[in-house]
Nucleic acid binder design. Structure first.
Length: 288
DNA sequence: AACTACTCCTGGAGGC
DNA sequence: TGCCTCCAGGAGTAGT
């Protein structure tokens, strides 16, 4: 679930509260979380100061004196900072709750920073990864993951979206949006939200989209990300809760509830094996 | 080459 | 209550 807004929220929290601090200790309880070439371990970070944070799509890069650390939260990763020396923050997957006691049983890594500040990485499904690498290895690593343009980059324009989508003309639009080499940062929730904003059916073929539909899609993506950023991202909806109509996210997780735009009942279907929510009236598939 | 299906993993929800 | 099944979802990889 952590998509660009959640990762960006984590990055901002780290930038504001942890950059400039030195790591004085750590605890790792899930060894496979760490991916590193032989000889590189978290021990190399102890005594090292965090100097910078960057984000590339859903990847987070933390630059320390000694090493570069790349974090991907995948499906269920969460970053929470606590301690008497900082206000604290929470970002990423909402389980466990952001105010749950830390460490949680699924907390796999804790960094201790000087001045009583702690960063907890919790991941109930164990899919997240933390890569350790020397600074000089970062450019090659970033090149190897082949990310398309970032949604928050200044060059992210309707024209660029049209160009990038041309890479997958025979694909359905939703899987194309989820392809990080087309554009970087969209996941399952915001793909549904962007398509709802643009009034496009997720199974429309990319090659069938008109120029004006692609402009609508671009606007839908930008609108969705701008809605998500201030709150630090979407909340996975509890199916028992009956969220208010008009509350973000508008369609994802809202099967059986009215479309906030037209009142038609939101349906759920599977598109390329991903749970997909849409308004069957706003997002009609043209007759073929 | 381009697209799709499967895999990693666990907790929570729902059925009986 | 408790066991069982299903589902969530990013991205690498295997298959068509």
């Amino acid at each position: 679930m952590p998509e660009l807004p959640e990762v960006e929220s984590a990055r901002r929290g780290i930038a504001e509260q942890l950059v400039g601090r030195r790591i004085i200790g750590y605890e790792l309880t899930l060894p496979k979380l760490i991916v590193a070439e032989a000889g590189l371990t978290l021990d190399s970070l102890v005594g090292s100061t965090l100097n910078d944070t960057q984000r590339f799509g859903k990847y987070l890069l933390l630059t320390f004196d000694s090493l570069s650390v790349v974090i991907h939260l995948k499906l269920s990763g969460q970053l929470i900072a606590r301690g008497s020396g900082i206000p604290g923050f929470a970002a990423g997957h909402p389980v466990p709750a952001y105010d749950a006691p830390m460490p949680h049983k699924s907390t796999h890594l804790r960094f201790d920073f000087e001045g009583d500040a702690h960063l907890f990485l919790t991941d109930i499904r164990h899919f997240g990864r933390v890569w350790l690498m020397p600074h000089e290895a970062v450019p090659d690593y970033l090149a190897s993951i082949k990310l398309g343009p970032d949604l928050l980059a200044p060059e992210f324009t309707a024209k660029l979206v049209a160009e990038r989508l041309k890479r997958r003309p025979a694909s359905k639009i939703k899987p194309a949006l989820l392809d990080q080499s087309v554009v970087a940062g969209i996941g399952n929730i915001y793909a549904d939200e962007s398509l709802w904003q643009a009034k496009l059916h997720p199974e429309r073929l990319v090659g069938s989209l008109t120029a004006s539909e692609i402009r609508r899609l671009y606007t839908g993506i930008v609108t969705t990300i701008e809605l998500a950023l201030p709150t630090g991202g979407a909340r996975i909806l509890n199916t028992k809760a009956q969220p208010d109509v008009g509350e973000f996210p508008f369609v994802h997780g809202r099967e059986g509830l009215p479309c906030p735009r037209c009142g038609t009942t939101i349906i759920k279907m599977r598109v390329n094996n991903r749970g997909t929510y849409l308004c069957p009236r706003c997002q009609r598939l043209p007759k073929t």
